[in-house]
Design a protein around this nucleic acid. Structure first.
Lengths: 243, 243
DNA sequence: CTTAGGCGTTTCACTGAGTGGAACGATCAG
DNA sequence: CTGATCGTTCCACTCAGTGAAACGCCTAAG
């Protein structure tokens, strides 16, 4: 483990998640493998600086992170620009619209518009393996070889029985996406949930993000929805480039 | 200045804002008053840990902050719960709907639904002095004496010519809000922009947040809009309590 | 072309910021 | 009552972090 103060502070902050919003000193110490006295002292200091805040007998993520998080460029500019178009797409398709970027071998959901169709839903700021998602695959299809190789080298674990889990299958899928101009998730990241996705290109012609219409499999019709998601993606790309 | 590593790291992170999204080593050093070598080393380490990322010849806020920011309880739970009701309120009133919490002497905008009516608009994660905003005043009206005294002790600077700037005027306004059940911003935070606001109470009966319908002064009618914003606030409070 | 200024980056002797084992009091469950 | 766990505090110790100085590169002005 990296022992610098910054590494430890980051490790502490990352210990909080959707299911553990409030944590006490001892639990943080356990989850970060830090001595309890160190965890205690750092928690207190992070609270002084509003990175964390006291909540009952424990700590939780603080307002400063929310304020700073809202300024992160990927959200501050791309998502804000995309939101109206995503809302339009949600209105016409009744799907749940996702905007995601690739980070390493995973996609991070930058903005989501529309109702969740399952109890365990995607979340803004959440992550999934790129190879198992429609948005991830459309981004990979238009990314350089390094990104694809990194994903393959990291492994292609199955999320569901339908997840593409061999390099060959993934490469063929990426080739089909490049040919079709759109991609799909056929229950590869969540049983019963499918999507049709399109890449968003930046002003420099590089792929910037992925946009998808997601919903229960029976309501996702690629033939009907493909042009809509591709058009919306182009619109978003043009607006982001102009901003 | 506080010299701890955590304080310095936080200072660096807070140096980025909406108008300075990408900053180089020397500029960060200047703005934080840190020696250039220290700034350089910390920027690099913050980038290693994804708190920041390289962008061209500079640095910008990184994806980790966006991911963590999305988990901050105030946004993760209250805003997510409130968004559908805020959308409804936006649809019926055509106003810009704000949800804000009090932090110290300022309000932080937790969620905003609807179009901005001015080029320089409120922003999710942004802040304004509580005494100059409708949402801030409705929260203060239902807060304990400590919060009100802190605001008065900090000073009541004018944002516009109409901002309440004396303790007496503020106290009378808070009393009127308690009596009316709703509050207003009559061009006190932004010339030409007004709002009608209502408090959102938590399950424990304490004020949790403020909700407002905002827009150009000529379209904000407290008589017509008061019950709508109060009803929406009650709905949100009940939903947050049940989640 | 030359010079000056500013940038990002690196080095290393120095020291005090940060550390963590140990102890303590409070609380809870058996 | 006993044992386990929690959050909190103390303090001797040491090495993580520091910043002045230097460097090469780039740009703008004269």
């Amino acid at each position: 483990m990296d022992d610098s103060v910054i590494a430890r502070a980051v490790s502490i902050v990352r210990t909080f998640d959707a299911r553990h919003q409030v944590l006490g000193v001892s639990e943080v110490a356990r989850r970060t493998n830090l001595p309890k006295a160190t965890a205690h002292r750092m928690l207190r200091e992070l609270a002084v600086h509003r990175v964390l805040e006291r909540s009952g007998s424990g700590y939780r993520l603080g307002l400063l992170l929310f304020e700073v998080g809202a300024l992160v460029p990927v959200h501050h500019t791309i998502a804000a620009t995309a939101r109206p178009v995503m809302t339009d797409l949600r209105d016409t398709t009744r799907g749940r619209i996702h905007l995601a970027v690739l980070d390493g071998t995973e996609v991070v959901y930058v903005e989501i518009v529309g109702e969740a169709h399952t109890p365990i839903a995607s979340r803004v700021g959440g992550r999934l393996p790129a190879h198992a998602t429609g948005v991830g695959k459309v981004i990979l299809a238009h990314s350089g070889p390094a990104a694809i190789e990194s994903v393959i080298a990291t492994g292609l674990p199955r999320i569901t029985a339908r997840t593409l889990h061999t390099p060959g299958a993934l490469m063929r899928e990426l080739e089909a996406i490049r040919s079709d101009g759109q991609g799909y998730d056929r229950e590869e990241s969540h049983v019963g949930i499918s999507c049709v996705a399109a890449p968003i290109f930046g002003a420099d012609g590089n792929v910037l993000a992925g946009l998808s219409i997601t919903g229960p499999t029976r309501m996702i019709d690629p033939d009907r929805m493909g042009l809509a998601v591709r058009t919306a993606a182009r619109t978003i790309g043009r607006q982001v480039a102009g901003s």
